[in-house]
Design a protein around this nucleic acid. Structure first.
Length: 143
DNA sequence: TAGGCCATCTGGTCCT
DNA sequence: AGGACCAGATGGCCTA
């Protein structure tokens, strides 16, 4: 377990996080069907989940396959301007909700994770969250 | 000034 | 057909 300077109030933080986690889980189970038991570790342990610059198929974390279709097979249907603009708008909102979720996630991390008084970047937030969960898990394992 | 981070746009693919 | 998701490209902003 990697120690973090100044992080001593682990029990309080743990209790806080766990209670929030329970609350969130209740929300999830009563609401939408995102899968809480999806393998977090497997998602995070592979650095390049879908890196393929050649013609081989690539896979998303959810297992979706991105088949590479040859240029000849590709129908090349151009989106209408109206549809393209709508898609851009949706994508903008989707990415904003993703950013919002990351901001919320950042709030769950103990302040000791943010150094130099600067907010964590998105990548830092995800990496520290992994670390934090591991640390909380190891604490629970010791019980 | 280079590099990191971020928001946005875009085209491809899958799903309903 | 249209929405959702994804990755690549691009440009702006900020910091060391």
């Amino acid at each position: 377990m990697a120690q973090i300077d100044g992080w001593v109030d682990i029990d309080v933080a743990t209790a806080k996080i766990l209670s929030r986690w329970e609350w969130r889980r209740e929300e999830r189970t009563s609401g939408d069907a995102s899968s809480p038991e999806s393998s977090f570790e497997s998602m995070c342990s592979s650095p390049e989940m879908r890196s393929s610059s050649d013609g081989s198929p690539t896979y998303t974390p959810s297992g979706r396959k991105h088949a590479r279709i040859s240029e000849q097979q590709k129908p090349k249907v151009k989106m209408s301007m109206k549809r393209r603009m709508k898609a851009s708008e949706r994508e903008k909102l989707r990415m904003r909700s993703l950013a919002e979720a990351l901001h919320q996630l950042r709030d769950y991390l103990p302040p000791v994770y943010s150094r130099r008084g600067q907010p964590l970047t998105k990548i830092q937030t995800l990496k520290y969250t992994i670390q934090y969960i591991k640390e909380l898990s190891s604490i629970l394992d010791q019980q």
